[in-house]
Amino acid sequence: MSTTSATPTDAAVELRRMTRRSFATGGIATVAGAASLWWIKHAVPEGGIPWPLRKMMEFNSRVSDAIFDPNRLAPTFDVSRAREPRVNGMIGLKKELDLRRWHLDVLTGGDKPVIERSLPINAIHELPRFEMVTEFKCVEGWSEVVHWAGCRLSDFIAKYGHDTPFVGLSTPDRAYYVGLDRASAVHSQSLLAYEMNGQPLTSGHGAPLRLVCSLKYGVKSIKRIGAIQFTNKRSADYWAEQGYDWHLGH
């Protein structure tokens, strides 16, 4: 420890001078810091959140994409651990759905989508069946182990879809919609599910067909899918418009 020897008065005077200087520096730093935070908070919103924070989310996603390995899987559990998750979102499910008239539209094209085909539920049932018991993680912070059965989205894309960078899924009334990047869409744990815990999906859980994307928070696992769109432009996403990250996963 270095020392400055001085007379008592000199020492006290010297220290007072240094204290003043340090507090001035600290004061300026505090004001500058507070001003920066204020500026971020009041910056023009982009998708419901100040744009600097949106930019940070996109930066985080680039980091996340850089370390993404499709072979790393979400942990799977014994089927005895499966429970019924709560019904948390009803957007797009509010109207009664006539299951006999339901069909899945496959769309292509960007801003002016074209219906390429309209598939009955049998088309999905005919694809190879896949089951998994994974943890369904809600963005709110709760999670539940659930047993799902359906077809892999990758199998569906191979048969009925296109190899586009983005896949958008929406409810029949277009009230709820999510976007996926290709890597997440073709991941081996991304399902078009028609059964939950050994039973056909109930209306509240998205009958007759829902997405289960184990890489991402539950908000991406859209219920009651009415259309799947293959596009080169990042697909619209309901919650990404409300201030959430578009990717929300890995």
């Binding site: 419901g48 959140i49 100040p50 600097p52 924070l53 949106r54 940070m56 989310m57 985080n60 963005v139 709110e140 919650w239 409300q242 201030g243 959430y244 990250d245």
Partner: peptide, 14 residues
């Protein structure tokens, strides 16, 4: 304010 919380949390974490 969940969305706002996440946005700040995952920015300030750096």
């Amino acid at each position: 304010r969940l969305a706002e919380g996440m946005a700040w949390h995952f920015a300030l974490m750096w």
